[in-house]
Amino acid sequence: MNPLEHALDTLLCLLLLVLAWKALRAEHLYQSAIFFIAFGLGMALAWVRLAAPDVALAEAAIGAGLLGVLLLDSLRVFSRPPNGSGKARQNTDPGDAETATATTSRHPGARATRLLATAAAAGLAAVLVTAIVRIGDGGGLTEEAAGQLEGSGVEHPVTAVLLNFRGYDTWLEVGVLFLAMLGIYCAGGWVGLTGGREPDSPGPLLSWLIRGLTPLLILTAAYLLWLGKEAPGGAFQAGVLIGAAGILLRLAGYPLTAHLSPGMVKLGLTLGFGTFLVFGIAALIPGGAFLEYPEYWAGEIILLVETAAAISIGFTVFAFFAYLSSRDGSPSEEHNSKPSTTNSD
């Protein structure tokens, strides 16, 4: 490794630390959000330097692309007058506590929260350091996975591990996303996804942008999905891009899911988890293990499962956003009666 690469890696590490610190300790939540978006970008670069382009791709799609929009929209929905932070604090959900610490230093509970967060972070750091020390230089199961690659149905080792060797994990990950979505909608109702605002007429620039960008997003999603077979890509990244296309249409006042029947929306949300389950159980019939695909069909099954998972992830991601963006218009909700001002500047 030449000295320039060392310099770059050191610089990236320092930048990440500064960005993380600023994201936690910025004056306003809006600043925190911007720093967090930048932190996502820095993380993507760090994964690149660690020779993990798959993770960098996921970080680019989720960390830097999607989360920024979700954070900005959350800020809009949960923003409160800057002077009454102590009082308004009680109205926010406990899950919001992490992001709220930047502005609520006067609140007595903030200190305890911060201590708890510090303790949890320190504990996790200790566990991770022990893990790093234990791994050593052997490289774990890399060789074993590479040896089995031929029968996996795909050429890219990461996809082979995620969708075939450890398909169980990915299946449950899709399940976790589904649960998160259910949680949001149990708390907030179904209306954000199936109903939606009356479409405002988007301006000429925005409608031009949507016409150009929406097909591009879908096309890129399909490209990444197909690419997953032989190179970094795959269902999660593709799903986020599909969700992003939905978010774009929603932002412009075309609530896509409002045109689908509730049954279709539910089908979209459950398709990924269900397809995994169907193929997993089907593998049991000839006497195989759960999610053990037959070698001959493995490639096709993986593509099918990935497509279904991508569609579901897209719907789920869109559902997160649709829930947030449905929360400004309805006066029945308690949170929404507050004046909507961003607390930056």
Partner: peptide, 14 residues
């Protein structure tokens, strides 16, 4: 380059 592509298509959403 694909990572760049993903960044590029998502940047405008924000």
């Amino acid at each position: 380059r694909n990572v760049t592509l993903v960044f590029a298509v998502l940047a405008v959403l924000l």
